[in-house]
């Protein structure tokens, strides 16, 4: 498991709709800010890169210092972004795919307004479990 990680889902309006700090490293507030800044900045690159490939998993698109941003873009242009410091690409890919499944289930909920914040605790639990499993 990666020592640092931050997982975020960004809606097609560039709004974060889900955030989770995953990873075993001690969570400092300052670091959490930094993670968000890096992920926010990576959106620029994703925006261009998403249209150059038909694959949903864009692999590592950006990096800063030792932190790498891997991105998975769904068909609806929702971006699953993971900030991590390990290089376990297969694990990340599986992670993304399973989170995508979960996200689709959220979308199927008639009470969920697409593009709004995901507040389901069940989703949160599942995502964290997946993070432990794959990352």
């Amino acid at each position: 498991m990666a020592s640092t990680g931050c997982f975020i889902i960004v809606s097609k309006n560039d709004i974060p709709i889900y955030e989770a700090e995953v990873g075993s490293a001690a969570k400092k507030e300052e670091a959490a800010h930094q993670h968000q800044f890096i992920l926010h900045a990576a959106l620029d690159i994703v925006q261009d890169l998403a249209w150059t490939t038909s694959a949903m998993f864009l692999k590592a698109v950006d990096r800063f210092n030792d932190l790498v941003v891997s991105v998975y873009v769904t068909a609806g242009h929702t971006r699953l972004m993971l900030l991590h410091d390990s290089r376990n690409e297969d694990g990340i890919k599986s992670f993304f795919q399973e989170v995508h499944e979960l996200y689709v289930k959220i979308l199927l909920n008639p009470l969920y307004l697409p593009g709004s914040r995901i507040t389901s605790s069940h989703f949160d639990t599942k995502v964290r479990a997946l993070a432990r499993k794959y990352l």
Binding site: F37, H40, A41, A42, L43, D44, I45
Partner: peptide, 16 residues
């Protein structure tokens, strides 16, 4: 340079 590319968020990140 990121700003020249039109990558405003990247530019902002490095500006910070």
């Amino acid at each position: 340079l990121f700003g020249t590319l039109g990558y405003q968020r990247k530019a902002a990140f490095f500006a910070r």
